[in-house]
Design a protein around this nucleic acid. Structure first.
Lengths: 342, 342
DNA sequence: TTGTATGCGTTATCAG
DNA sequence: CTGATAACGCATACAA
């Protein structure tokens, strides 16, 4: 009599019922080969002892793990969080599990994580590059993986140097839309607060910003562009920036920069949005609950996650070997709140 | 000659070098049994073709996956996010991967996710109960898993009805500290904004609130306690609440409630913190960047994650079968910002 | 020093 | 209809 507690295997059932393992296997799959009697007996027994096939054994046999590896720089950023949620949603519905690894913006960690997972643990990767990787421009770890035939989907922070499926929002358009919005409200001295431009997304957003200015016959004044480190924002730097410039609007490449600098501006006595308007990126909790609430370019992270997962799983499950990659570009949308005029 | 592209196995190496599989296996483990010559030859070949053992095969053999299953209600909440980060950090350092599953506050999803993972995919669970599970009080899925000998660590949203390791912060103490802080500032009409009290944490925080009031000889007035749904906060309800009561301080059981109701109060013309002070729970981005910035009871999510991971991995790797469970209680700390007087 | 056999849990092929 | 055998990739006890 098998123990009720521990997991039961086909072998256990076979032994108890004095049949062969293969008979049990077939019976549980309701195979036509097996007689009604035997099937019922075996199925009843399996149910009673709550038999569940061992995933690992099946993975070994099928060379399919039904696991997806997700490697992202950070999980505390709302955007990545929503992407994960989207991936989870789609993947789970398809019977896949999601293994999350954080690179914490480090190249080495990204490499280690990928290697760890690439040895059979997952069927494919969904990832967004760490800032260090983008700065370094070294994508060999990605190539190694794709060359092994492991499908990869890059999202948001991508590179053109690797051939694989990609999902991005049109960041340039986002920057453009945001800037145009400000221009449309009569703003003429529009500043930009961004990161160093090795980050592909910041770069694109900056391009959109410039494009909109040029198109509106406004000068692109480099002194109106402030670059901040991702992590430690220096309040004084922002304060000086606002003081030394005449500025009537600010576009920020993320919501943290926006909310933070908005507060600095308020402290300096500026009226938002009348004197200075603000627009950020990422439609997260911060934007929603900021005071004043923040107008943002929404990136639709959850949708991005779903699409990434879908592209990956399609590739994983597709039989054909044809190497055809696509890049999906999502449209950003403006969510207007109180940090801009009406 | 094996293909440079696809994964190479022991068998491939053995065939190429015309030795047996076990010789290869031993050689790559630098076994003393194998001659220097053979070892060098095999190791060189393995390096050349970038041999990496297949995780799945090793898992099947060792009955250890080196995967941890993390089942949480939500990933958009900052608190859970930080816990994941803590888990990741510790687990990765120990060579474990983290499989994240979201219950989205649903009992059924929680059960399905656990079953999915319990069939060999993971070595143990770290989880926080969904609100539905806590409301329902049904913990059979947890018991089934522990009875199979799979270690479980519950954190934050826990239950006494399951025997396993647990990690919590002292939520009652948190509520107590927050309320005491407000009392210490001369506040007498301290309101509470909370969720329905099937959530273990809200319940405990409420107890702490009441305890502090009683201890300070202040009446516990149930009409000063407002219960809101977790998701859709009704602005009007809060407005009415503030209007109908004389209130000089508010403790909220999370940061979203706090930031949101703070804004309502501001709109109604109240001065924060002079007329109404606010304290929330969870030291997240919202609190930090809110305007005014929010005083909170910090829950130390990252630490909680690390401890959970440590407890779980200890149990997973411990040989002995003795069933001894512990509950770690972390002390909450007050992070004072501008929503309270100095 | 090397190789053979066995097993981890499952499935699939083929023989009976 | 049922069962023996091989295979997935690896590790190891035991022979040689």
């Amino acid at each position: 009599m098998p123990n009720l507690k521990s997991k039961i295997t086909l072998k256990d059932i076979a032994r108890e019922l004095e049949v062969s393992i293969s008979t049990v296997s077939k019976a549980l799959k309701n195979s036509e080969e097996i007689s009604r009697d035997t099937k019922e007996k075996i199925q009843a027994f399996a149910r009673l002892y709550n038999y569940k096939p061992n995933n690992i054994a099946i993975s070994l046999k099928n060379k399919r793990t039904k696991n997806i590896g997700v490697v992202i720089p950070d999980i505390v950023h709302h955007f990545f969080t929503t992407v994960i949620r989207g991936i989870e949603k789609y993947a789970n519905a398809k019977g896949y599990n999601v293994i999350v690894c954080l690179s914490e913006e480090s190249f080495d960690k990204e490499v280690i994580n990928m290697e760890m997972l690439a040895n059979g643990s997952i069927d494919g990767f969904i990832m967004s590059l760490s800032s260090e990787t983008q700065a370094k421009g070294d994508y060999n770890h990605l190539r190694e993986v794709t060359e092994q035939g492991i499908p990869v989907v890059l999202f948001d922070r991508i590179t053109n140097e690797v051939e694989c499926d990609k999902v991005v929002i049109d960041d340039q358009l986002g920057g453009y839309l945001a800037t145009k919005k400000l221009v449309g409200q009569g703003k003429k001295k529009i500043a930009l607060i961004t990161t160093d431009d090795y980050l592909s997304v910041s770069k694109a957003r900056t391009e959109g910003y410039k494009k909109a200015l040029l198109e509106s016959n406004l000068p692109v004044d480099e002194s109106r562009i402030l670059k901040l480190p991702t992590m430690d924002m220096d309040e004084n730097k922002i304060r000086k920036f606002f003081n030394s410039q005449e500025i009537d609007a600010v576009m920020c490449v993320n919501e943290i920069f926006a909310v933070f600098s908005m507060r600095v501006a308020l402290e300096q006595g500026f009226k938002i949005p009348e004197e200075i308007s603000f627009i950020g990126f990422t439609n997260g909790l911060l934007s929603k609950y900021a005071n004043p609430s923040l107008t943002v370019v929404a990136q639709h992270g959850e949708r991005m996650g779903e699409i990434s997962a879908q592209m990956l799983i399609d590739k994983v499950e597709s039989e054909n070997e044809e190497e055809t990659f696509q890049t999906k570009i999502l449209e950003p949308t403006l969510v207007v709140r109180d940090s801009t005029i009406n």
